[in-house]
Amino acid sequence: MSSIDPDTGGSSAVKAQLRLREMLLAGELPGGARIAELALVERLGVSRTPIRAALMRLEQEGLLEALPGGGYAVRTFSERDAADAIELRGTVEGLAARLAAERGAAQVVLVEARQCLAQVDAVLAGPALDDEAFSRYVALNRRFHALLWEMAGSAVLQREIERVVSLPFASPSGFVVVQANSPQARDMLVVAQDQHRQVLAAIEAREGARAEAIMREHSRLAQRNLREALLGQDHAQMPGVRLIRQKV
């Protein structure tokens, strides 16, 4: 494991936070385990100050829980927790889509969203997806959702959406990777892309209720992927699944 170069100021804490998040999602720090600060200091090669700052930020993200006597432990989540987080993301993204339609989205953002979807169409044009194409889809999917949030023109709503999607299983691409090796992978992504186009059309037509309903339905694809991820045996490529308990 590579160490993080010692640094001063906030950059060390950010680097530590990123590395710790990777470790948590990869299952290197098992669910329920108490975090040992000194062990992390040695493992990551930084001082205790940035480690503590990183732990505090990860607790705010919801990946760690503060213990009554001090310190932190790795959080675990029930399947219901994960499903509720996805449902909440669908709700707030639906609100963003409705506000974008009712208030009128900025033309420059609409143009960028159309260009993003055109790039997705190009990725999905082939009969199958290789690893490079799939990675490209994930990046474009993330970008489209970010543009959708921007269309609402609400800093308050965008802040709340970012809070919701901070958990790995609630992000727009959180469970898309489940489809990577599925025979139906391209078909499901085509369905998701059609929903992207429908919501953009509804926003441009100023159809708020329709735009909201489409995004609520869009989150149901992630619910399906969650169930498939939990049923699967190989979680190596599925960040965060090891933290999800299948019993409520």
Rank of each mutant, 00 (worst) to 15 (best):
L148T: 01
Q60G: 06
Q119P: 04
L148A: 01
D234G: 04
A170N: 11
F169R: 05
Q233R: 15
L243F: 08
L140Q: 03
L167N: 01
S12Q: 14
D194A: 08
M1C: 04
V74N: 01
D121Y: 02
P68V: 04
R216S: 06
R89G: 11
I214M: 06
M151Y: 00
S219V: 12
Q246F: 13
R75L: 05
I86P: 05
E79P: 03
V178H: 03
R142D: 15
G174Y: 01
M215F: 06
S166H: 10
D84N: 07
S78V: 03
L124S: 05
L231F: 08
R19W: 02
R206W: 06
A39L: 08
A122L: 14
G126F: 02
E93Q: 12
T76L: 05
L58H: 00
G31C: 05
A106F: 11
L99V: 04
L148P: 04
V190K: 02
L226S: 02
A73S: 11
E87G: 10
E160M: 11
S154C: 07
L95W: 06
R114K: 09
R224F: 14
S166Y: 08
E162R: 15
A222H: 04
A180R: 14
D7C: 14
A222Y: 04
V177L: 09
F134M: 12
A66K: 15
M56E: 13
L226Q: 01
L110P: 10
R19S: 09
L148R: 06
P30C: 12
Q195P: 03
V46A: 00
Q107L: 09
L99W: 03
V190N: 07
R210D: 07
I161L: 12
A96R: 00
I4Y: 01
L40T: 08
L67W: 12
Q158N: 13
L200K: 05
S219P: 05
Q17M: 12
Y137C: 13
Q115V: 09
S11A: 13
L110R: 06
L55S: 03
Y137E: 09
D234H: 09
A125Q: 09
S78E: 03
S11F: 12
R220W: 06
G126K: 07
G45L: 06
A201N: 02
L167G: 00
A170T: 14
R75A: 10
A97G: 10
P127W: 13
L167P: 00
A170G: 09
M56K: 15
V109Y: 02
A16P: 00
V178W: 04
M56I: 09
L95A: 13
D121I: 10
R89L: 03
G174E: 06
L67M: 15
A26K: 12
S47I: 02
G240M: 08
P6G: 01
H145S: 02
L20I: 11
E228M: 15
P172V: 06
S11D: 11
V165Y: 00
P30Y: 03
R98D: 04
E150C: 05
A192N: 09
R43W: 01
V176R: 00
Q119R: 08
H218W: 10
R224N: 14
S182G: 01
V248Y: 03
A85I: 15
A36F: 05
T49Y: 13
G10T: 13
R206M: 14
F144A: 12
E204C: 01
V178T: 12
Q237H: 12
E204M: 02
A118F: 07
E93F: 13
I35G: 03
R89D: 07
L99Y: 00
E207N: 06
L18Q: 15
P68I: 00
I35S: 01
G208R: 01
V108D: 15
